[in-house]
Amino acid sequence: MKLAKTYSFIKKDLNQIETVLEDSIYTDHDVLRDASLQLLKAGGKRLRPVFVLLAAMFGDYNIHHVKKVASALELIHMASLVHDDVIDDSNIRRGKPTVKANWDNQIAMLTGDFIFAKALDQFTEIEEPRAHQILAKTMIELTLGEIEQIKDKYNLNQNLRTYLRRIRRKTALLISSSCQLGAIAAGTSRETEKSLFKYGYNMGMSYQIIDDILDFTGTEKELGKPAGGDLLQGNITLPVLYAMKNPSVKNELIEMFKYPETVDKEMLEPVIDKILNTDAVEEARILSDRYLQKAYESLHNLPDIKAKKSLEDIANYIGNRKI
């Protein structure tokens, strides 16, 4: 099943959000406008708006109100991606050239700042201060997650806890906040809001773990970027952490990271093979499934509406991404 099919009944509302996104990044300045549009047209699953809309359906759903939250969250996600590409020095995202590749780092920085400001400007139409406190905290955590990632680069002495904290900040919180903010915008009960937050958090954790697995098991064509890219950049993800239980893998990584600047794709290939020959991928998948299970459980107490079925289907889809 295709992901979009799981929430086809909100397609019309998602189209409205797409229009809001396009309108909000409009500017007379042609380079900024083209760069922002390129980012917007690069597509993406629009998962955050989907979560906002579905969560809002557990309360008093009003698309004119909720779309402000949904589009603001997608804009924040977009702004963080364009800055991420500068940080990672990436020229390709989803198989297409990045803003920094088409223009330069400075334009990418300005585009990110511009989109970020548009997101906040839009989000201020939501009066509820608690919503702003949640979003502000999420944005800070998101950056702290990225800072931690740089701090822990090439550090083979990190543990599962460090990794989980990092992906919670980097990925899970923006998804859980999307669910929570959708619920707040629709005025659901605090209990429902909490359940949706938990669903988003567990989904986000599972999603990132699977992304980290795919970085080893996917092909360049499927990923839209070279396989093993995370490790090449010195990012120690869950499969690597598990694979390092095998001393020979750990020793090989220690040797390789003695001179990080010399590590290239060719050097990495045999190490990736070794990692794939351990149980690491399977163990990582088991942990991802546990988070997924928790995501399903978070939905148990919620009423059986269409949105609940969609949230379950999304979890199913995420869990079954080709590993």
Partner: peptide
């Protein structure tokens, strides 16, 4: 440096959200 700028942006928003001053965020 990229992240420091993003971090400070988050801090400004957080300070004003904490003070419930949404109009100044705008």
């Amino acid at each position: 440096t990229v992240l420091a700028g993003d971090f400070y942006s988050g801090i400004y928003y957080h300070l004003l959200a904490k003070a419930k001053d949404i109009s100044f965020v705008r």
